[in-house]
Every structure is written in structure tokens, then in C-alpha cells.
């Protein structure tokens, strides 16, 4: 297990290093001069020179890279051009809101997916199966930037049950979380159904039946517990994806998280903030994935003993 942990830790460090290097290079991909793109056409050469110096773009690339990495190690992500305050403060202020949204979305996804997936598997080949899998297919296919406005139209405007946007009012999280969680609910439901159906063919299920156990015990105790392993893995991996997908949902609902900060900063050409948001969301994604792998290895010894 120690060997496994070391290997996982090293690969986590390596990938974080590569990803942060790619994020560093991102600003150098701006066509032309990033400084004149940021300041617009009307900036004076003196202003441009000052900004170039502030961002360190007047130094050789390798010096910029070392400076960037030294900064990262002290969690110094530069200064926002728009807010004129440290980027790390801005990001830390928004991060909890995004994490909260992702966790609530996951919760809603689980609450929808489990009954749907189990019902489909138990009634496999009959109409409940087709109905719930059709619902799941629609769920995967609805883009969240359309589902969001439709939910607002129904629940906020027509029925006036829930707030339209923001995060100040109680229950304001419900519509964004449902919007973000729908696709995941659909994926999990399909996964759980497939996983259960596979397990129904196993010998130990036949044995449990032959022993005369009730259906509730066979399905609830023997089948569901074993079907959960792949589903839990997918849940962990998808939590990372939720962090990425939250960008669009946050914009739709004006949710004050990292994603909204990212899109606003892109429009303001505030590149230090853009870089920091991409870096933080990516690192969160990588860490969640590594933790999922760890939990999976802990649950299933075959994984950690491989290689």
C-alpha cells in the first residue's frame, strides 16, 4: 500500500507540474501582443510598458517561468488587472461557492439516479426499464445552458417558487444544482442499471436465491453492494467533471463561483485571473480524481496490487 501511495503521489505531482506549466504557456498563445490585447487600442506606449513590466512579460521566457513557479509555491498568483488585488484572494473567496454547488449537484444526482437505475434493472426489458432509460438518455442530451433557463422559466417565473439567480436567498442553490446534476444523474442511472444487470447473472446471486432469501435481501444486500463499486468510482471521477461543468451553470444563474469569475475575467481580458481560475479548477479536478483512485484501491485490493 505504501508503494502504491508513493506512486500515486508522484504521478499527482508530475501531472500538477505539467498542467501548471501549460497554464503558464496559455498567455503566450494570445495572438499578437497580449499586453495590447488586454489594454485595447487606445493605450499609451508608457501604459503598455508598465503593464508588460508588471506581468514580467519583458523578461526572457525562462525567467518568467521560474518567477511564476516561485510565486505558485507561495500561492502568489499575481495581481488582478481589473480588481487591483491579489488573484489568490479573489480565487479563495469564490472557490467554496463552486465546491458547494458541485456537492449539492452530486447529491441531487444520487437522489435521482439510484431509484431510477434500480427500478430499470429490476424491471429489465419491460416498460419501466424503457421509460427510465429514455429519461436518462434525454438527461444526457439536454445541454445545461438550456435546461437552466427552462427551469427558471417554469419554477421562478411561472410558478414563482424559487429565486431566479444569485446565491443570497435560501433555496437559491436548488435550480443551479438540479441543472448541473441532471446529466450526472442520467449517467449514474445508466451505469447502476448496467452494473446491477451484470451482477444478477453471478453465481452468488443464484445461491442467495436458492437459499430462499427474500427479494429485498438478495437485491438490497447482495446485488446493490457489489454493483456500487463501479458506480462510486464514476461518481468520484464525475465530481471533477462537475467542477468544470459548473462554469456554464454559474453563468446561467449568476452564481458567484470560480466559473463565473473565469468567464467575466475572459471578457475583461484579465488574464492573470483567467490563468488562476483554470489552474485552480484543474488542480481540484486532478486531486479529486486521485482521491477517487485511492478510495477505489482501498476498497479493491486487486487495483493496488497490480503492476
Amino acid at each position: 500500500m505504501i508503494n502504491y501511495l508513493l506512486r500515486l503521489g508522484l504521478s499527482l505531482l508530475f501531472i500538477t507540474w505539467v498542467v501548471s506549466s501549460l497554464v503558464f504557456l496559455l498567455i503566450h498563445l494570445v495572438p499578437g501582443d497580449p499586453v495590447s490585447v488586454m489594454l485595447g487600442d487606445w493605450a499609451s506606449p508608457a501604459d503598455e510598458q508598465a503593464l508588460r513590466h508588471q506581468l514580467g512579460l519583458d523578461r526572457p521566457l525562462w525567467q518568467q517561468y521560474i518567477h511564476y513557479f516561485m510565486g505558485l509555491l507561495q500561492f502568489d498568483l499575481g495581481t488582478s488587472l481589473f480588481f487591483q488585488q491579489p488573484v489568490s484572494d479573489l480565487v479563495l473567496e469564490r472557490l467554496p461557492m463552486t465546491a458547494y454547488l458541485a456537492v449539492m449537484a452530486m447529491l441531487i444526482a444520487v437522489l435521482i439516479a439510484f431509484p431510477l437505475g434500480m427500478w430499470a434493472a429490476l424491471k429489465s426489458g419491460r416498460w419501466p426499464d424503457y421509460a427510465s432509460m429514455t429519461v436518462a438518455l434525454v438527461g444526457v442530451s439536454i445541454p445545461n445552458f438550456w435546461l437552466g433557463p427552462m427551469l427558471i422559466l417554469l419554477f421562478s417565473i411561472s410558478l414563482a417558487w424559487l429565486p431566479v439567480s444569485g446565491a443570497d436567498q435560501p433555496w437559491a442553490w436548488v435550480l443551479p444544482a438540479v441543472t448541473l446534476g441532471t446529466a450526472l444523474a442520467a449517467i449514474l442511472a445508466r451505469m447502476l442499471r448496467a452494473s446491477l444487470l451484470e451482477i444478477f447473472h453471478e453465481d452468488y446471486i443464484r445461491t442467495a436465491r436458492a437459499k430462499g432469501l427474500s427479494n429485498t435481501r438478495v437485491y438490497g444486500l447482495h446485488a446493490l453492494r457489489n454493483a456500487l463499486l463501479p458506480v462510486v468510482t464514476i461518481m468520484g471521477l464525475q465530481l471533477g467533471t462537475l467542477l468544470g461543468g459548473a462554469v456554464i451553470t454559474e453563468v446561467v444563474f449568476d452564481w458567484p463561483g470560480l466559473g463565473q469569475l473565469l468567464v467575466d475575467s475572459i471578457q475583461r481580458r484579465d488574464y492573470p485571473v483567467v490563468q488562476a481560475c483554470i489552474l485552480i479548477i484543474s488542480v481540484a479536478y486532478i486531486t479529486v480524481n486521485a482521491l477517487t483512485e485511492l478510495v477505489y484501491a482501498w476498497l479493491d485490493p486487486r487495483i493496488r496490487l497490480a503492476n
Binding site: 498542467v19 496559455l26 498563445l29 495572438p31 468544470g244 461543468g245 462554469v247 483567467v274 484543474s282
Partner: peptide, 21 residues
Amino acid sequence: IDVFLAFPGLLLAIGLAAVLG
């Protein structure tokens, strides 16, 4: 391939589209 898979895909596309215009 591992490094690319480690990035959330949509986020990378957003980042690229943002800097490329």
C-alpha cells in the same frame, strides 16, 4: 494522453478559446 485526460476537457477548450479569441 494521461496529461490531457487529467485536464477537464471543457475547461481546456474554454481557456484556448479565451486566449485565441
